[in-house]
């Protein structure tokens, strides 16, 4: 089980959180092509290594926040 550091509550068990996927995926601005829209909706990075991702402290303070996690070692560093 991961130990995830909520910026408000400190380190808590993974079971208190909901996973939010890749962080920093911005809503596309202005007119977008079908390809750009498809990329926004469906394409996410899937790296083997460090990954910036969002977590939701659903059973705690209900804050959304981002961390960096290594997808092989599962090590987490707050950023």
């Amino acid at each position: 089980m991961l130990l995830i550091e909520c910026p408000h509550c400190g380190p808590r068990d993974e079971t208190e959180f909901h996973y939010g996927g890749q962080a920093g995926v911005a809503y596309p601005a202005g007119e977008v092509s079908d390809e750009e829209w498809a990329a926004y909706v469906f394409l996410r990075d899937n790296p083997k290594g460090w990954f910036r991702e969002r977590w939701f402290h659903v059973h705690g303070c209900r804050t959304w926040f981002a961390v960096e996690r290594h997808t092989v070692t599962h090590e987490i560093r707050t950023s």
């Binding site: 089980m1 993974e14 909901h18 996973y19 996927g21 899937n46 991702e53 997808t71 599962h74």
Partner: peptide, 13 residues
Amino acid sequence: DAYTSYGQRGGVH
């Protein structure tokens, strides 16, 4: 398991 991973292991919960 909820998160993405290449670690070939998951949480015991």
